[in-house]
Amino acid sequence: MARKVINRRVRYETEYGAQKKEGHAFFPYAMFHDVVVNLLIVLIIVLMAVVWHATAGPINASHPAGTNGWFGALYETKANPAVAQTEPRPEWYFLFLFELLRVFKQPWQLIFATIIIPTLLMVMLIAWPFLDTGRDRRLSRRPAGVALGLATPAVLIALTLAGASAPGAISGANISKNPAINALPGSQLIADAACATCHTFPTGGASGPGSSLANGSTKYGTDQKGLATWIGHLANQSGTGMPAFDQSFNQQQIDQIAQVIASLKTNSVQPLGGS
């Protein structure tokens, strides 16, 4: 059987030539659509800026950043490297990555959220035209591609929504149901550092990316020295994504935090530094 020589270029040019015959000149036909939509988009951006500014409320001494408007405050309080008072929320288009951190929160799984999945997504994105090389462009003739093209945004949207509605921080130093623990100086420090934006405490907090501290630390229990090292820098060095708190707190403060975490284990106040 003679091998038939097919020229993909001739085939394509025949097809595209026929499609062009059905078309029209770029100007004014296609450009008309462009101009209408471009003006609309610019209008939307201006309107968003106006509504954001107009609804953000008066800026005065008691509301230095204005009250939260429809689209959020104009700015929040100035960054203070020592205390985190707000949740470290990324821009909405990074929420899916943020949520992945909660899904893969065990230290050994973390690499999925931080490296493997983002890299895979980027490689797939760039390489897609070289993976899907079938010549028929009709949706009905490329079901696998279409399924992937629908599933990917669906998953991204689901992760984004989950990330956006992740529980926030707990109010003040009321991290446990035991008032004696809440009265410890470390509890206030935990509130300042906003640990509950990543960890669960007995009264609430986030279900990730950090582990649950509702019953204290699984890893260290009442070992306050171990906890202090972990909070100070070991967690950060182990690649958990947790900040190194020895950059923002002194050793005494870190010991006080460790005391509280150890106390959560027994739900009773442990002496500072351990028994």
Binding site: Y75, A79, N80, T86, F94, T114, I115
Partner: peptide, 30 residues
């Protein structure tokens, strides 16, 4: 996306600062 990441910190408010701390820490785990 890189523009979004680098632009966020420039406001230098609480939210942006801590989001960038987390982003950079996560990056460091690679």
């Amino acid at each position: 996306m890189g523009m979004g990441l680098t632009g966020y910190l420039l406001v230098w408010d609480e939210r942006a600062y801590w989001a960038s701390v987390v982003a950079i820490n996560i990056n460091g785990t690679a």
